[in-house]
Nucleic acid binder design. Structure first.
Lengths: 241, 241
DNA sequence: GCAAAAGTGTTTTGCTTACACCCATGA
DNA sequence: TCATGGGTGTAAGCAAAACACTTTTGC
């Protein structure tokens, strides 16, 4: 029946590693050291090897690029990009993975990653030939996934240290959504979601002001009720900046 | 730097084609005609050819298996499955696509598809070695995607003919979510969502009872407000049957 | 008129927003 | 005491759930 033969592929895993630094969303980029797109910023990634599961490749690349133990942080597949012309080196499909990291004192020094660095996500630059290959699209899709998941999953805590304040968590939502949220309503909302966060005995003392209770991650995998975004569409949320 | 070579792959597109028949969710399955898994039910699919985009493969397979013009119906990528042992024939990654079709008078006769048939989705059989390869997992993930998207997108209208009643639409939600919904609240909810459906001058006359207004698809790509599922988790929605 | 499906009105309840207000600390 | 960030109380608005009720057809 099927007349023409299957195309042989190589499969790359590309990583969208996000974190929050100075209250802004950042992505880990590398500068490409060789053609194609030499000198251009790109997402870190690499090819799937024989016998290796896709996720294992993602974990390995994460370790190579950032020194992070990928087993410990949030890592999820986003989608696959397979346009025949997307890579001039040949037929290469890329599976994008989204990784979320707290603002670690990262030894951003790996084997391949002499040039790895955190770059603030600039919504304007995004999507107009900023990154190599089709990585603009990969980045946009991954960020959109993160934005959605903040609503109904405890993903936001993956951006935080093991102990965090409600304000820390609010900074995550504000940075990823790019909106400003009412601290008082946010506080009550978060603490009202079943098993989202769990209070500890610890406190954090700000330079000035009342000390904040430190929380740890709760056991919920879905949030009830959800942390809905300030009305998407026709009502425009307060822009940040 | 990178020591070991990339693994060579073939990439298959597998289709989860869903429709509603007699108020139940059905999926299009084929019976495998050769090893591996000969005689077992499986999702229709095929390999990506040289120069072919992933989506183009999906559209081509859709036409071959069902005779449907894939350009016209809802088609979206779900995710990619690439475990090294998932296919005994070698290193094959599979990209799953979700297709939604109205209950067409389908000439389910294609080249490869002598054995294609609609099968009701049985939540119990799902996930316990029902389908060939890892297709149980593909099917489960695709259905979960469809369930989610009913909430915030007009996906449900893709299950309907060009003209449909609010009851038709409700039957879609009930079949996909597996719950029973209050017809009166559902009616007001749907007609209250901006640009979800648009009333026409047409009417449909049931065997008995008041005639129903026929609607067509609206222009909305996101629903405001969303059609939220009867409280997920701790509160259990009324099961169907 | 009766049965059956379509569609409307009304009440209660619960989440969200807006914002006034209190709390705990450093300087 | 003041400034500052943390946290609570409260009332208005909106949407959902429950359900009584009206409308429009075939027989």
């Amino acid at each position: 029946m099927s007349s023409r033969p299957p195309s042989p592929f190589r499969i790359a895993i590309d990583l969208v590693i996000l974190t929050i630094r100075q209250d802004r969303l950042h992505v880990l980029l590398i500068e490409r050291g060789k053609e194609p797109f030499e000198g251009r910023p790109a997402l870190p990634g690499g090819f799937v090897r024989a016998g290796e599961d896709l996720r294992d490749t993602a974990v390995r690349e994460l370790a190579e690029e950032t020194g992070i133990d990928g087993g410990k942080l949030h890592l999820e597949q986003v989608r696959t990009y397979g346009h025949p012309d997307r890579d001039p080196r040949g037929r290469i499909a890329s599976v994008a993975y989204l990784a979320i990291a707290p603002d670690l004192p990262i030894p951003v020094a790996g084997t391949d990653a002499a040039t790895a660095h955190w770059e603030p996500v600039d919504n304007d630059r995004l999507g107009r030939g900023w990154l190599a290959f089709d990585h603009d699209v990969l980045l946009r899709d991954a960020i959109e996934r993160a934005r959605d998941k903040l609503e109904y999953s405890p993903l936001a805590t993956a951006f935080c240290q093991d102990l965090f304040t409600i304000s820390d968590l609010r900074a995550v939502y504000e940075a990823v959504w790019g909106v400003r949220l009412d601290p008082r309503n946010f506080h009550r909302k978060v603490t009202g979601v079943k098993d989202f966060v769990k209070a500890t005995e610890e406190r954090r003392f700000p330079p000035t002001g009342r000390p904040a209770i430190l929380y740890e991650r709760g056991t919920a995998s879905l949030l009830h009720p959800a942390m809905l975004r300030p009305t998407r569409s026709h009502d425009r949320p307060t822009p940040l900046n």
